[in-house]
Design a protein around this nucleic acid. Structure first.
Lengths: 242, 242
DNA sequence: TTAATAGTGTCTTTCAGACACTATGTC
DNA sequence: GACATAGTGTCTGAAAGACACTATTAA
């Protein structure tokens, strides 16, 4: 019988591994990110400060990294099916006072109506924090290096919005094209031209009509839903960057 | 009967953390990736098999993840300054028989002339393995899940080549525009149109002339070098994908 | 009828694709 | 001069930007 006995020193020298998630939604006509407040007085670092939801990988419960991220997402929001994407990993000796640690950062997109916030264990409070147009984060400094992690997640999100259908995942299942355009504008922080936007969306085959209309105080708007669950990539970005 | 006892690290409930690197270069007019052979008989898993270079994060020596990747790169190739980018992280219970493990995958680009291969500790042999046009990896199956990791690294590389200057990092410091175009074609696996390519490169301000020419058996070609160390992003992809 | 938003058509601009053309070296 | 590769010019087509225009409902 062959044993792979990992020696104890090696185990000690292994970094800590966490998963942190930037959960985005659109609320009050603005992009918002979910924050949790760390327990006010405890042995954990940064008591009482606000942070991205996350925590240690549990090698008993989590079969893989994505499952770990989904578990944490569900614990805070109750939401299971949503868009979830890995942003990157940040690891060094100093980011966590408990030792050399690596965090796997994800971002999630969801319609705000789906969400029932739950503080749950390990969190004193939960809230949506708005992100100002063009800002790289929320108004306050977050625990650990989470302000930086949020800035990276935002940068990735804004970058991909230029050429993908990601903002559709911020909306409820059925939406009008004006609502979709508004979601793009909120994430990008700049207005888009209506005609070009609609041609682009329809050329990409992103959405399909549903036999309903949104009725307000004026002309009703056709409702659509996503044709595919997966994101769609457009042939070009919205406006050349250079 | 071969049995992997439940590893000691489980007791600490923390995953193992490794860094693996897909090091790419252009050799013999083809894209190639660096492989290392695992020691033929040892207590380590997958003896004698070929794998991407990598290994455990050393929390004593490595100040952060990038430093860890640079250390491993230098150990195998002697190269210090090169393009290095994080591709993503893969972690689950089964990928390493020693226990729940997470690997941070990077890819590196370098001119082949810079490289002096070194097997070093922990590796029986080192070699460049060519990647066929359009293939998702090398001809053989790699140790662990490294065939998958390589496929992801390749996908990322090919994707970014559509709209960035990355192939320039596969070339020596001075190069002709034809050589640059060839590097793009090798990575993309398809021919590009000369005129469009040159307009694009010059519009992007990617390169600058050096006062030398490459002399062969016909008209000499102007030599160029990168204007910036950092990659340049083009306003559009080479050819629309949809 | 008016207000308000939904939705379309047309012209322009930008840039890649195709391809022919000229330029400049070696032999 | 022949040949080979370097390098340019011109036309076309695809898709975004700008902006005016029409359509449809509630009140």
């Amino acid at each position: 019988m062959l044993e792979y006995t990992v020696n104890v020193t090696s185990a000690y020298k292994n970094p800590l591994v966490t998963v942190d998630i930037a959960i985005f939604t659109v609320r009050d006509d603005a992009l918002a990110v979910l924050l949790v407040q760390r327990p006010p007085s405890s042995d954990d670092p940064h008591p009482g400060e606000w942070a991205l939801p996350g925590g240690f990988v549990d090698i008993e419960r989590d079969t893989d990294l994505l499952a770990c991220a989904r578990r944490k997402l569900k614990e805070k929001t109750g939401v299971v099916t949503t868009y979830l994407e890995q942003v990157g990993a940040w690891g060094n000796r100093k980011r966590d006072p408990r030792g050399w640690s690596v965090t796997q950062v994800y971002f999630a997109l969801m319609p705000s109506m789906d969400v029932e916030l739950r503080a749950g264990a390990n969190a004193a409070d939960v809230r949506w924090a708005p992100i100002e147009d063009g800002a790289t984060g929320v108004g306050e400094r977050l625990a650990f290096d989470h302000s930086n992690l949020l800035a990276f997640a935002l940068e990735r999100l804004r970058g991909k919005v230029e050429y993908t259908s990601l903002p559709a995942f911020l909306l409820p299942e059925e939406f009008t094209l004006s609502e979709l355009q508004r979601a793009y504008e909120i994430v990008l922080g700049r207005p888009l031209e209506k005609s070009a936007f609609r041609t682009r969306v329809s050329d990409a085959g992103l959405v399909e009509k549903v036999p309903r209309k949104r009725r307000t105080t004026n002309r009703p708007a056709q409702l659509y839903r996503l044709k595919e669950r997966a994101p769609v990539y457009f042939p070009r970005t919205f406006s050349p960057r250079s």
